[in-house]
Structures are given as structure tokens and as C-alpha cells.
């Protein structure tokens, strides 16, 4: 029996195929649909940008939800206490949007991200203490902030970090790496007032430094690979 294709059927089939094909291309806002491995499009780019802003590296921001993006989503979900499934669903996207929003004053007017010092501090922590235990990272951030209160050091976070030759990782450019999420968290905690270093203004790696001056400073405690001194 010959298959009789009615004209209406053709139109409907072609219409369906086109709409499915074009739905990926049409501009969709972040949050409209579930994003997972294989998704593509401007919403994926927006997702990746927000992840990078919070410190979860996705490789390159290219609009393609690949393995690195999935790993970043998993790390984000884990650290925020969400269910870890590697998919950007409503909960995950809502949390992402909330955290990357601007701060507002009491009447709701946006006043900016208010995180200039935090960002720079996070970069410094990332550059100097990437592999250290979390409490060691907070301590490194605290050392920089302790220097502000000390009369012998420069008075702003940027001046302290960028003082030529004060930090070796600044001099060799590691400061320009994007900070990890744990560095950002460590910087935020230190700015809040946490100081696991006990008031230190110097830190060094005892296994790698033979500088006599720093060895002569009164030592406070050792956390991870870093010795903290006054």
C-alpha cells in the first residue's frame, strides 16, 4: 500500500522539526530550561560567566556545556550545600543569580558589587597559598590585612600586595590567575575579622627560605607549609 502523505501532515511535521531546531538558536534567558552536558547557546555563556565570577573555573567561556563546566557546577553545588548532580536546574541557577547580583542599599538601589578588596585579596591568597589547607589560606589573607594596621607597612590592600618584591608570587605574575572559590571564601572570612595567624605580619615556607631576616622574626605558629611570624 502506498503511503499517502497528506499535505497537512507535511506542514505539521516540518513545523515541528523547525521549532525544535530553532528553539536552541532563539535567544533564551538563563533559567528558562535545564542545562546539562551538551547544551549550547547564550544561556550557557551566561552560566559560565557567573561561575567564573564566583571562582569556579570552566576552562574557556565558549557557550558549550562540556566536562569542565559540569565539574564547575558540581563544585558550586557542593560548596553551596545543594544537591550535586552536575545539571544547572532551577535551584542551582537561582542560587547563581542571587550570589552574582549587586548589593543594594536599604531602599533597594543597587550600589555595586562591593568586593574590590575581596577580589584582589582572593587573588593574592590564590597566588601564595593555593595548595594550603583552608585555614592556612584564611591566615595568609589575614596577614595582608594585619599589615594595614601596622604602621610600618603601606595603608591599602593594593599597595601592600603590589609593593615591588614584597610577595614573590606577585612578582612572577601568579597574581593574575583567576582566584578559586576557596580563596574567595578565605578572603571574605579574613575581611570579616577571622585571624588564624595570631596577628602575624609575615609568613614564609621554612623548607624553601633561608633568608636570615625572616628567620629572626618571632615565630607564632605553623599552619600547613607556612610559618607565620610577627
Amino acid at each position: 500500500m502506498k503511503l499517502h502523505i497528506r499535505p497537512w501532515g507535511m506542514v505539521i511535521t516540518i513545523g515541528l522539526l523547525l521549532s525544535i531546531a530553532l528553539s536552541g538558536l532563539a535567544y533564551a534567558a538563563l533559567g528558562d530550561r535545564l542545562l546539562g552536558r551538551g547544551s549550547k547557546g547564550p544561556e550557557v555563556t551566561e552560566l559560565q560567566k557567573k561561575l567564573v565570577q564566583l571562582g569556579y573555573s570552566v576552562g574557556s567561556v565558549d557557550g558549550k556545556f562540556g566536562s569542565k563546566t559540569e565539574a564547575a557546577i558540581r563544585r558550586f553545588q557542593k560548596e553551596r550545600g545543594l544537591r550535586v548532580d552536575g545539571l544547572a536546574g532551577t535551584q542551582t541557577i537561582k542560587e547563581l543569580k542571587r550570589l552574582t547580583g549587586q548589593s543594594t542599599n536599604a531602599s533597594g538601589k543597587a550600589v555595586g558589587y562591593k568586593n574590590i578588596d575581596t577580589n584582589l585579596l582572593a587573588r593574592a591568597v590564590n597566588a601564595e597559598a593555593r595548595g594550603e589547607p583552608y585555614i592556612g589560606q584564611v591566615a595568609v589573607a589575614a596577614v595582608i590585612l594585619n599589615r594595614i594596621k601596622d604602621p610600618a607597612f603601606p595603608k591599602t590592600v593594593a599597595d601592600i600586595i603590589y609593593q615591588p618584591r614584597a610577595f614573590s608570587s606577585v612578582d612572577d605574575g601568579q597574581i593574575n590567575l583567576a582566584p578559586s572559590a576557596s580563596s574567595i571564601r578565605a578572603a571574605q572570612e579574613a575581611i570579616n575579622g577571622s585571624d588564624p595567624s595570631g596577628g602575624a605580619v609575615f609568613f614564609f615556607n621554612p623548607a624553601k627560605t633561608s633568608n636570615k631576616y625572616i628567620w629572626s622574626r618571632p615565630q607564632i605558629k605553623q599552619i600547613g607549609n607556612h610559618m607565620f611570624t610577627k
Binding site: P151, A152, F153, P154, K155, D159, I160, Y162, Q163, P164, R165, A166, S168, F202, N211, Y213, I214
Partner: peptide
């Protein structure tokens, strides 16, 4: 003080010049 912070420093060392200026 701000300018002093931009002159190449040795890696370590308290700065008494800086301290004097701050005080």
C-alpha cells in the same frame, strides 16, 4: 607613604621610614 610603597623593596623587612611617616 604611597610613593614609598612603589619603590622596589627587598622581599622582607619592616619599614621604619614607612612607620615614621605613618605615625
Amino acid at each position: 607613604l604611597k610613593d614609598f610603597a612603589q619603590i622596589p623593596a627587598q622581599q622582607t623587612g619592616l619599614s621604619y621610614v614607612g612607620q615614621f611617616l605613618t605615625q
